[in-house]
Simulated scan of single mutants.
Amino acid sequence: MWIKLNLDGIVLSFRVKRYIKTDNSNWDTTWCCVDFCLESKSWLKYEVRNDEILLASEIDSLIGMLENLLSDRQTEQIEYQCIEPDFSFVFNPKKDLSLDPNYEYVSPEDRFVDIDLQWKVFFWNGGLTDNYISVTLNRTEIEYFLVYLKVIAGDLSEENDDIVKQLIKKNILY
């Protein structure tokens, strides 16, 4: 199953295969196979196919971190670097701008900035480069990504869970 998100004009397509639940004895040896693509009109087309770049335990960690972010249990920015250097995730909690010293005045209706997730994709060119692109997921897109990962982990199913059925109907999951 794939997830496809249009992130302000950059389309992210992502699929995880061969996920297996892990435990303390195999958390660092159980690799998932990943396909992903970033596309935008004629200026961007970066893809990786059938590559072992995420551990199953990293999928589990991402699920927990996304749940914490969405439920406002996270209060500080957290960057999660995967073991393989293809991805990095920056989890940004809700922020009260009136407490930020960079702002002199914040109107009451603009006081809070909602959560977001920055997904950094690092480029390879015969080897890892210093170059990357960062796409930002808003709350709704984070919720979709969490549902997708829960499907991959077997916590949700397309047969039994209405949210999964809705995302399939919208072609976000396919």
Rank of each mutant, 00 (worst) to 15 (best):
L66G: 13
L66C: 12
E67W: 14
E67V: 13
E67I: 11
N68Y: 13
N68S: 15
N68K: 15
N68Q: 15
L69S: 05
L69K: 10
S71E: 14
S71M: 12
D72G: 00
D72C: 00
D72L: 03
R73V: 06
R73N: 12
Q74S: 12
Q74A: 04
T75K: 05
T75C: 03
T75D: 02
T75I: 07
E76S: 06
E76Y: 00
E76G: 10
E76V: 01
Q77R: 15
I78P: 08
I78A: 05
I78E: 10
E79K: 02
Y80G: 10
Q81S: 04
Q81A: 02
Q81T: 02
C82Y: 12
C82V: 03
C82M: 00
I83M: 12
E84G: 07
P85T: 03
P85L: 00
P85M: 08
D86R: 04
D86H: 02
D86I: 05
F87R: 01
F87G: 06
F87A: 11
S88I: 01
S88D: 04
S88G: 06
F89W: 08
V90A: 05
V90F: 12
F91L: 04
F91N: 00
N92P: 02
N92Y: 07
P93S: 06
P93V: 03
P93E: 14
K94F: 08
K95Q: 04
K95P: 00
K95S: 05
K95L: 04
K95T: 14
K95N: 00
L97T: 12
L97R: 10
L97V: 11
L97K: 05
S98G: 09
L99A: 09
L99Q: 12
D100Q: 04
D100Y: 01
P101F: 06
P101D: 09
P101K: 10
N102M: 01
N102S: 08
N102T: 06
Y103I: 04
E104G: 11
E104V: 01
E104S: 05
Y105E: 02
Y105D: 04
Y105M: 06
Y105Q: 00
Y105W: 05
Y105F: 03
V106I: 05
S107H: 13
D110C: 14
R111D: 04
F112M: 13
F112A: 02
F112L: 14
F112S: 06
V113G: 14
V113D: 15
V113A: 15
D114Q: 14
D114C: 07
D114V: 11
D114L: 11
D114H: 14
D114N: 10
D114R: 11
I115Q: 15
I115P: 13
D116Y: 06
D116W: 01
D116A: 05
L117W: 08
L117H: 10
Q118I: 05
Q118S: 09
W119G: 00
W119H: 01
W119Y: 03
W119K: 11
W119L: 05
V121S: 09
F122W: 07
W124C: 06
W124I: 02
W124P: 03
W124F: 01
W124H: 13
